[in-house]
Write a protein that binds this DNA or RNA. Structure first.
Length: 815
RNA sequence: GGUCCAGUGGUGGAAUUGGUUUACACGCACGACUUAAAAUCGUGUCCCGAAAGGGAUGUGGGUUCGACUCCCACCUGGACCACCA
């Protein structure tokens, strides 16, 4: 009988749904396993093969867990709010709300085709008011806790698209959509105080089992650095400035100070300086030119402020300059500078400031160059100090700690920890997102200030407005909808104005894993309070989370941050939402990144209809290690379609053939069980599939002697990868009543896995000269005897001085 | 510029407490079947060499009886971050 993949796959999709094999019994589950994959944002023409790749990889893991006896919950939903979706709607001239309905239908259709074990009943969409009601509720809790606040801040602005852009839409200083240069604009914005949790976000990384590269990225992003703050008075003023330094070993080398052009203290510093206005004009220009392009270290610009500070370490008066390379938002925004920093050095040279090197290399010739100021020397590890006298002649890396003690004792500085992490800018002046649930009560009325929308009034529904395009007026399109923004103050009842900005998409996705569980209690559209859900205790945190590495410092940091806040508010019982996370690799196409502009995006639909979902799944997983990604080439499909054809053929003949035992095959089968199980646990799907191919090859060779038991084991091992064909063979060919996907995963017999004979390598001076087939466990004497009589070895054995023997592996004659 | 990862046949890739380099698959070549092609099946396929043998895991060095694997330097590619003091 021929295998018609289209028919078979649709048949099982229907049956699986009817039999509810992918809906765990939530209340009575003994062995809950929450298997979560990052949900997609339906931004473009549909699901592309990269999504398919990610979901299939996650699904295979879930299927193993299910067959191993876990109650697996594998939900799916759409991250449909946000700029991505809105941009797509803009592009094709649709209203985002209308487009969402179309995309939703198409995405769920496509997601259905790949045959994953999704719990369809619990699916959710972030633009559903029942969902974003709770997104807004979370905002309100953040505000009440003092973790949501407003601040004026420069944001990315695309002059051509006339809109604010999210950071992630700014690629190398230009707009992702039109390549225009992005400029900074000062706007008052809502922020979440993620910096409060910097230390915990960093420390908890030690406790969670995540792909190491993601942990590294988060550590770098949080950017903890320990340094010293020196403070010193500014002459002729009553100001005191503080400077931050992490490379403070050469602290006596400082000869001047720079301050950021946008530093809040600058204006007061310049009070009384004759050319104040000239300096401020300079600062304004620098600020506006910033971020236009990549920074060039040699191109620093500066201007002298006319002020001096008294150096705390005794270098006299240090001139204070405004420098383009000083950042107001890092450290204290003011830096003490020396000859031992590349940027400082270039700046000093450019403006003829006095230099005083105190750190030198050992090599005298090299040292001379530093003394003559021909070269900048920055090696705080191998350099030797000449100052202060207490540390003269000592290596920089050896005395870091001592210097801290020294300066603290002398009251010159204090140790401080700083982070690169900045607060999360949460507002967006766009339409397609959850309105921020805040109301401002100004002076004409009670002047109550910012008030949260009362919880019973949530959700603040996003109105359907015709003109949803970005306005270019620093305000969301909602600001032109009077019905929306004109409200009463919840506190005094006076006339007030509703916040018209919406929140960042990453807030939507920062709590969705909790929302899926809230869907269970009510299968309609309502989400009952997700944080008082009794199921949370049993089902959270998520057991396995799989997703793309591109979210390593966005989504994956925000979601951890919010979980910590929830924990501190007593809303959840865990701090880390995903104790185990694995990043999958990037799927490229013919050597290039898939992108719409290149026109090389692969739509999975045609592959599924031509070869079947099973073949596509297997091909995607066979390309390479799941954690590393792979290159999608049409030619590669052939290998797995052949494999599946052969599996089908084998199933058609084997059940009528004899049941005779075949010891070789039995051993291979058990070895394969072990290998496939371990490989799936480690997400090494490519080698698991290759092991199945090897087993199939051997089964074909010994066709007449396959027992039903071995075929059953084979089909079970295949089930996570090719769920449809495995089910078809399991039920229709082998006659089982219950689904293979809830059957028991095979276990290997460790006795049967062991080989009784091995190929033992015979080497002479480390070169392989012969391979002998021997029984396992033979002693050196026995092996030596056999090896010495080997024809290929005899001629080398004249002057053996030493013999290296590794049991069951090799013997090496060294002469 | 910083951080991290990778470099193995014609191609995707296998191989890790250091122990037979190239599993599995694609492609290619030849053969079978066919009027023919596709599909399928079989055989072969790292390089040099008739063979014996030698060489080969980006390059150069080191440690070791033995290195794809560990160490040092460099080259190339990729990812993320990027004026972070």
């Amino acid at each position: 009988m021929k295998y018609d993949h289209n028919k078979v796959e649709i048949k099982w999709h229907r049956k699986w749904l009817a039999e509810k094999i992918y809906e765990p019994s939530f209340k009575f589950a003994k062995n809950p396993f929450y298997n979560l994959m990052m949900f997609p944002y339906p931004s473009a023409e549909g699901l592309h093969v990269g999504n398919m790749y990610a979901f299939t990889g996650a699904d295979i893991y879930g299927r193993l867990k299910r067959m191993q006896g876990h109650d697996v919950f594998e939900p799916i939903g759409l991250d449909g709010f946000g700029i991505h979706s809105e941009n797509y709607a803009l592009k094709i001239g649709q209203h985002p709300a209308d487009q969402a309905k179309i995309s939703q239908k198409n995405f769920y259709r496509q997601l259905g085709l790949i045959g994953n074990g999704f719990a369809w009943n619990e699916r959710l969409e972030t633009y559903d008011p029942e969902y974003y009601k709770w997104t807004q509720w979370i905002f309100v809790q953040m505000f009440k806790k003092g973790l949501a606040y407003r601040k004026k801040s420069p944001v990315n602005w695309c002059p051509s698209c006339k809109t604010v852009l999210a950071d992630e839409q700014v690629v190398a200083g230009t707009c992702e959509r039109c390549d225009s240069v992005v400029v900074k604009k000062e706007l008052e914005q809502w922020f979440f105080k993620i910096t409060n949790y910097a230390e915990k976000l960093l420390n908890n990384l030690e406790k969670i089992d995540w792909s190491e590269r993601i942990k590294i990225a988060q550590r770098n992003w949080i950017g903890k650095s320990e340094g010293l703050i020196f403070s010193s008075p500014v002459k002729d003023t009553n100001l005191i400035i503080e400077t931050f330094s992490t490379h403070f070993e050469a602290f006596t080398a400082d000869t001047f100070v720079v301050i950021a052009p946008d530093h809040p203290l600058l204006s007061r510093l310049l009070d009384g300086v004759p050319n104040k206005s000239e300096i401020l004009v300079f600062c304004k220009r620098i600020i506006s030119e910033r971020k236009k392009d990549h920074y060039d270290k040699k191109d620093s610009e500066g201007i002298f402020t006319g002020r001096y500070t008294v150096d705390p370490v005794g270098n006299g008066n240090l001139p204070i300059w405004v420098a383009s390379y000083a950042l107001a938002e890092y450290g204290t925004g003011i830096v003490k500078c020396s000859a031992h920093d590349e940027r400082d050095f270039a700046f000093e040279k450019k403006y003829g400031i006095k230099l005083k090197p105190v750190l030198f290399p050992k090599d005298p010739e090299h040292r001379k160059k530093i003394e003559d100021l021909e070269e900048c020397y920055t090696d705080m590890v191998n350099g030797y100090l000449t100052e202060p006298p207490e540390f003269a002649g000592r290596k920089a890396e050896d005395i870091r700690r001592e210097i801290v003690k020294y300066v603290v004792k002398k009251n010159l500085a204090r140790p401080v920890t700083k982070y690169k992490l900045r607060d999360w800018l949460i507002s967006r002046q766009r339409y397609w997102g959850p309105p921020i649930p805040m109301i401002f009560c100004g002076p004409p009325a009670g002047g109550c200030g910012w008030q949260p929308v009362p919880e019973e009034d949530l959700p603040v529904k996003l109105p359907y407005i015709k003109d949803f395009k970005p306005t270019g007026t620093n305000q969301s399109p909602l600001a032109s909808d009077e019905k929306f923004y004109k409200v009463e103050c919840p506190k005094c009842g006076g006339e007030a104005r509703r916040e018209t900005d919406v929140s960042d998409t990453f807030l939507d996705s920062a709590w969705y894993y909790i929302a899926y569980l809230a869907k269970i209690t009510n299968h309609k559209s309502q989400i009952t309070n997700p944080f008082s859900n009794p199921l949370n205790k049993n089902w959270l945190p998520v057991n396995m989370y799989i997703g793309g590495a591109e979210h390593s410092v966005l989504h994956l940091l925000y979601v951890r941050f919010l979980a910590m806040v929830f924990h501190d508010l007593g809303l959840v019982h865990f701090e880390e939402p995903f104790p185990k996370f694995r990043a999958h690799g990037l799927l490229i196409k013919d050597g290039a990144k898939m992108s719409k502009s290149k026109g090389n995006v692969v739509n999975p639909d045609e592959y599924i209809s031509r070869h079947g979902a099973d073949a596509l799944r297997m091909y995607l997983m066979f390309i390479g290690p799941f954690g590393q990604g792979g290159d999608f080439r049409d030619a590669g499909m052939k290998g797995v379609t052949r494999f599946l054809d052969r599996v089908w053929k084998l199933s058609q003949i084997s059940n009528v053939k004899s049941q005779k035992d075949n010891q070789g095959l039995e051993k291979r089968t058990h070895q394969t069980v072990k290998k496939v199980t371990e490989d799936i646990e480690n997400l090494n799907y490519n080698t698991a599939i290759s092991a199945l191919m090897i087993l199939l090859n051997e089964m074909e060779e010994s066709q007449r002697e396959i027992s039903q038991v071995e075929l059953e084991i084979f089909v079970k091992l295949l089930a996570p990868f090719a769920p449809h064909m495995a089910e078809e063979i399991w039920r229709e060919v082998l006659g089982n009543k219950e689904s293979i996907h809830v059957s028991e995963w095979p276990k290997h017999d460790s006795k049967l896995v062991k080989e009784s004979e091995v190929d033992l390598v015979v080497q002479v001076n480390g070169k392989t000269r012969s391979v002998i087939r021997v029984k396992v466990g033979l002693s050196q004497e026995e092996i030596e005897k056999t090896a010495r009589s080997d024809q290929n070895i005899l001629k080398y054995l004249d002057s053996v001085k030493k013999i290296i023997f590794v049991k069951d592996k090799l013997i090496n004659f060294v002469s």
